[in-house]
Amino acid sequence: MTATSSTKESAEELDERLVRRSLVRGAMSRPELGAVVGALAVFVFFSVVADSFLETSSLSTVLYASSTIGIMAVPVALLMIGGEFDLSTGVMVTSSALVSSMFSYQMTANVWVGIGVSLLVTLAIGVFNGVMLSRTKLPSFIITLGTFLMLTGLNLGLTKQISGTVSTKSISDMEGFPAAQKVFASQLTLFDVDFQVTILWWFGLVAVATWVLLRTRAGNWIFAVGGGSDAARAVGVPVARTKIGLYMGVALAAWISGQHLLFNYDVVQSGEGVGNELIYIAAAVIGGCLLTGGYGSAVGAAVGAFIFGMTSKGIVYAQWEPDWFKFFLGAMLLLATLLNAWIRKRAEAS
């Protein structure tokens, strides 16, 4: 009796082990694995060196910081999987916020009208990037660098022309503002801690992007155009349409971030956003996207944004010498990415 049960158990154990191994192998081949391990390492590190890092209120702050990066990093990752760059993302967020704010104010319109106009304008910028790219066949680096500079100038020039100053007027007393603020910049209380609504937007975008990448035809197209656009075109993938779509995805996220910027602070400084584009790209790369395209994941980019958020706030929680902030940030990110690359190499070897 006992003998049979023990053999049965051992047989089950064997099965379980088999299952587990394939799970492990499955996990090992995922692009976000390295980033997840890197994130764990950063998390454990700051839990040890920073006293207040583990409190739920701190978690909320870290998640907020991560979400403002992550909302953009996710579509930027998709774009990079599709083999292209976008350097205009940082200022596009500001453009989107400015359009929304100034349209509502100048037309004395309900703020939702401004939000709608802003969505159209921002998507148009995305379409412009995508169409220019497919028509001219120039590197996206150059095209979007042009857009970046033009938008930086437009943000300043138009704001100054229309508002008379370099920041917009407050729209917090206008109709529709409270509702829009609920959607884009409110706090949700969970276990007595306030969490920013951007975290939900972020998670939502990750879910949608992952679904598109892994479960739809468009997802296959994205991997195909990133892997080699000529080969993709030869097998019938609509390359131009896919890339324009990807740029529109980035624009959509820029619109969400822009509306958050506007409704969180109710005035927008026109010079903001410069330099953020590199942070979004960095988050995607930390999360396992290749700079050459064809490889990466939305979850990875989200984890990359989380690593960035944890590191930049963790340094503050740890109360390190502020003059060295950028150095620590750079060093931590490099370490997290090295760990990521090392694990991936291991995984590929096994």
Partner: peptide
């Protein structure tokens, strides 16, 4: 140039 970063950094500092 990154307002959300300013906000979360000040929050982090005040919490710690």
């Amino acid at each position: 140039t990154n307002m959300p970063d300013v906000e979360s950094s000040v929050t982090a500092k005040l919490q710690s």
